[in-house]
């Protein structure tokens, strides 16, 4: 563990909590893409299948359980609890355009042709594009509430910090995880234009619709 990865995990947790609290407190999921949240729940589900078979550390196990629980709680709030505020009109990104290429690629590019490795690779590739429905929804509605922009900021920051973690681990322990790195760089690039808007425009984001 290093400071970059720890900061990344904290940033990731903060992002998830920001969104969950926003929905819970405002009792509404307006402006939130339920599709992206389903994809994130799928990312955690397919990535943490080794939760009960491989013990890394208490931290690792606890964080996996927390991420799984919070992501499913978020999906539950959107599609069940506050479903009448769910903006299905604008949450229309064709997720099959993400899932099919990601499934195909995870069969082509993986470390081992075993179910666990392919599902892990699928989750890594899927995570890099899972925010697309949310970014698409924001461009469609032409705006994002300030809390949603904070959510996106911390979510983008987490994988940027993981890139720093991979650089650090390469230089200190010669470790590198090529699939995670390539996917993580692509994922972070997708946030770049949002980061620019977030920093220059501050809170409210008006995308040129």
């Amino acid at each position: 563990m290093n400071i970059f990865r720890l900061a990344g995990d904290v940033s990731h947790l903060v992002a998830i909590l920001i969104l969950l609290m926003k929905i819970w407190r405002s009792k509404s999921c307006a402006g939130i893409s339920g599709r992206s949240q389903v994809l994130f729940a799928l990312v955690f589900t397919t990535r943490y299948l080794d939760l009960f078979t491989v013990y890394i550390s208490a931290y690792n196990t606890v964080m996996k359980v927390v991420f799984l629980a919070l992501s499913y709680a978020t999906v539950y709030l959107i599609y069940m609890r506050f479903r009448n505020s769910y903006d299905s009109e604008n949450d229309t990104f064709r997720v099959e355009f993400l899932l099919i290429p990601v499934i195909g690629l995870s069969f082509l590019e993986n470390y081992a042709f075993t179910p666990l490795e392919i599902l892990w690779t699928f989750s890594i590739f899927l995570e890099s594009v899972a925010i697309m429905p949310q970014l698409f929804m924001i461009t469609k509605t032409g705006e994002a509430e300030s809390i949603t922009t904070h959510y996106l900021f911390f979510l983008g920051l987490y994988r940027a910090l993981y890139i720093a973690n991979w650089v650090w681990r390469y230089h200190t322990e010669g470790f590198y995880d090529q699939i995670a790195i390539v996917s993580g760089v692509v994922q972070t690039i997708f946030y770049c234009d949002f980061f620019y808007l977030y920093v220059t425009r501050g809170e409210e984001i008006r995308t040129p619709s």
Partner: peptide
């Protein structure tokens, strides 16, 4: 180095 099996990152 292919990282199979034990993955210690979230």
């Amino acid at each position: 180095n292919a990282v199979t099996g034990r993955k210690d990152e979230l």
